[in-house]
Nucleic acid binder design. Sequence first.
DNA 1: GTAGTATATGAGTGAATACGTATATACTTG
DNA 2: CAAGTATATACGTATTCACTCATATACTAC
Lengths: 112, 112
Amino acid sequence: MARPLPLNDQALEIVARRFAVLAEPMRLRLIQALFDGEMNVTGLVEATGGTQANISRHLQTLIAAHVLARRKEGLQVFYRISDPTIPKLCELVCGSLEKSLTRQAGHFSPGR
Amino acid sequence: MARPLPLNDQALEIVARRFAVLAEPMRLRLIQALFDGEMNVTGLVEATGGTQANISRHLQTLIAAHVLARRKEGLQVFYRISDPTIPKLCELVCGSLEKSLTRQAGHFSPGR
DNA sequence: GTAGTATATGAGTGAATACGTATATACTTG
DNA sequence: CAAGTATATACGTATTCACTCATATACTAC
């Protein structure tokens, strides 16, 4: 049960699609901004520095992938992380990156 | 140390790139085939059902991303998983997929 | 040297998609 | 009803990339 199973073609595409959703810096920025809790679109636009149209599109992508969930409140829509594995995934990748980057150093911004 | 850090632009692109490498069904198939241990290119071609040229390209991509490592032995080149976080990543995603797929069922291959 | 096998790469093509600009929808207020 | 605000979408463009076919490289054996 704990070890990775052999997946059929359809499952492989679903897994690949899942990774693809996380394969955009702007979407990672959105996810990062939502680690602290839910936020509305305007807040996310400001937090990420993107255009409203682009942020909205990325949010739809994340909703379709069930990474985020939304809650309407009057005119505003609040987004939040709905998949608990997302933070774990990011932790894993960031952790392994730290290891390989501390050798070369300078990739994270201490001073830049 | 354990919680996800805020990443700068360059780090975000590296993380995104990492996910992008895992966002292709054929590469996932290769990784899956290597869970049991190292394998040469011909073996991987047979295991995945891809063309030799295409498999070789994907292998170069995985090598460049430090997901795999290679070992030459005469004419043959043996590939293996070199990043221990890869199996964990796949486990995480597959686990969360199982949950959402067991409702629809049939995506995993019980036999084979 | 030549022939043969295993792996890598160059060139071309089609599909997917991130982004910007403009516009549409949804809701609130007067 | 009209006006204003928050969010979503349509369209066009540029880029990225997976794939195929053909060829190149690397090594072994004769």
